[in-house]
Amino acid sequence: MSEVKGTGRVKRGMAEMLKGGVIMDVVNAEQAKIAEDAGAVAVMALERVPADIRAQGGVARMSDPDMIEKIQAAVSIPVMAKARIGHFVEAQVLQSLGVDYIDESEVLTPADYENHIDKWDFTIPFVCGATNLGEALRRINEGAAMIRSKGEAGTGDVSNAMQHMRKIGGEIRRLSSMREDELYVAAKELQAPYELVKEVAQTGKLPVVLFTAGGIATPADAALMMAMGADGVFIGSGIFKSGNPAQRAAACVKATTFWNDAKVVADASRGLGEAMVGINVADLPAPHRLADRGW
């Protein structure tokens, strides 16, 4: 009987277990406990939520290992953490800490403007952001075991997440309707490997779990993303930048499970207090848009 760790099935399977759930950004152990108590399926440990990274500026990096370990000690659910795009040493550090998933994230300042991390090299699975199907397939080709649409993090404006989910879904539907001999050109246009393009055309879905992220601030936002075909939801600044984090977190969990029951979403939306203030993505000058990072 031989045991094999870090297989594709084990990495992708971990993401399957998160489906239908909400993954919440937390910056300390107290927030992590609030998230766990509210029914989060996992927490994302990071130093500053995207809204603060946006407000304070500067270079955003991997979190302090002490802070990650405190969060790991505080909760029993999976703990994820972010590494900078292309920063494989940050990823090695996170793997050595035993985090359950690494987010190679555009929310942090990229370390490499050409290459992403070679994720096949790791035992720990990676989630990566994508704004379209070609980008998603390039990340999967590099070993990503889970994809999330990028949205525009730290804004509370769901319009970019919506745009990315429509784009990814639309491109998948287009592939499914193509003749097989048209897939070679489709792969060229998507700038993605032919084998992955063919697989998506045949199955009508990504080969890994697809979550959504970026700008989700209310239970209705979460339900909207599920209705657009997301397998689950990341909520970053939306919870702990709001008036009543514990209640809003629990409400988003309920709305994610019952996304197609408007009455449950309505009940979950009652009396939540103030949502995060938010920034309209359209008002953000292009150099400040995080979704454009990654390629």
Partner: peptide
């Protein structure tokens, strides 16, 4: 263990 210890076995 954690995810880093997740495995397959026959």
């Amino acid at each position: 263990g954690r995810q880093v210890d997740s495995f397959e076995s026959d």
